[in-house]
Amino acid sequence: MEKRTGQFVGSALRRYQEFLSPPRRWPLYPVPDDCPCPSCCLDDVRNARDVLEDALAQLPPRARAELRRRVMALDKEYRRRTLPDLWSDQESWWRRRLTVN
């Protein structure tokens, strides 16, 4: 993976962590981002999770295992702190959560 892509994956991972910090009891709601520019795409935490999923598919085994370990811990917290959207037709599970509209 080239350096620029690696930096983007790092930014996506930081965004995912920031969304879940600090730990709280009440639900979190991802905020959809309609801005088409690349610098804003990670404002929507679901886009950050998309980047991480793409990286997991492309990384070599050792790096993939390390990233997967970190992402799985965040995924567990994301599922705990967001609410399912039973009417969503989105493919990815992290996009089938209630958002702020």
Rank of each mutant, 00 (worst) to 15 (best):
P23H: 07
L67S: 07
C41T: 15
W26H: 15
P30S: 02
R46V: 08
D44M: 00
C35H: 14
Y29P: 00
F8W: 15
V51S: 00
P61E: 09
S21Y: 10
P61V: 06
L20N: 08
Y16L: 15
R46W: 04
Y16G: 01
P23E: 14
R25L: 13
A65N: 06
C37K: 11
P38W: 10
R49G: 00
P27R: 12
E66F: 10
A48Y: 00
P27T: 07
R15A: 15
R46S: 05
L28M: 11
L13G: 04
V9D: 01
P36L: 06
R24D: 09
L67W: 00
C35P: 03
A55T: 05
E18L: 12
D33A: 10
A55L: 01
A63Q: 14
S39Q: 14
D34F: 13
E53I: 00
S11K: 13
L59W: 04
P60N: 07
R64C: 08
N47Y: 08
A57M: 09
P36H: 08
Q17G: 05
D33G: 12
S39M: 12
R62L: 14
V9F: 01
P36T: 08
P60T: 11
A57K: 12
L42P: 10
V9N: 02
P61N: 04
R25M: 11
P36E: 03
V31Q: 12
A57W: 05
P32K: 02
D54L: 11
R14A: 15
L20W: 07
P60C: 01
L20P: 06
N47C: 11
R24E: 12
F19H: 03
F8P: 00
R24H: 10
P36G: 01
A12I: 04
D54W: 02
R14P: 02
L42C: 07
R64D: 01
R14S: 14
D54I: 07
L56C: 03
P60V: 08
V45W: 02
Q58H: 13
R62V: 15
C40Y: 06
A63F: 04
N47S: 11
A65C: 01
L20C: 03
P38N: 10
V51G: 00
R24G: 13
L56Q: 00
A12T: 04
V9K: 07
A63V: 09
E66L: 15
P60A: 12
Q17L: 09
P27V: 08
C37R: 14
P23N: 05
D44P: 08
D50L: 02
D33S: 14
R64I: 06
S11Q: 13
Q17S: 11
L59H: 04
L42I: 09
Q58T: 13
D43L: 13
P22Q: 07
L20H: 06
E18D: 15
P27M: 08
R64H: 11
R24Y: 03
R46I: 07
A63E: 13
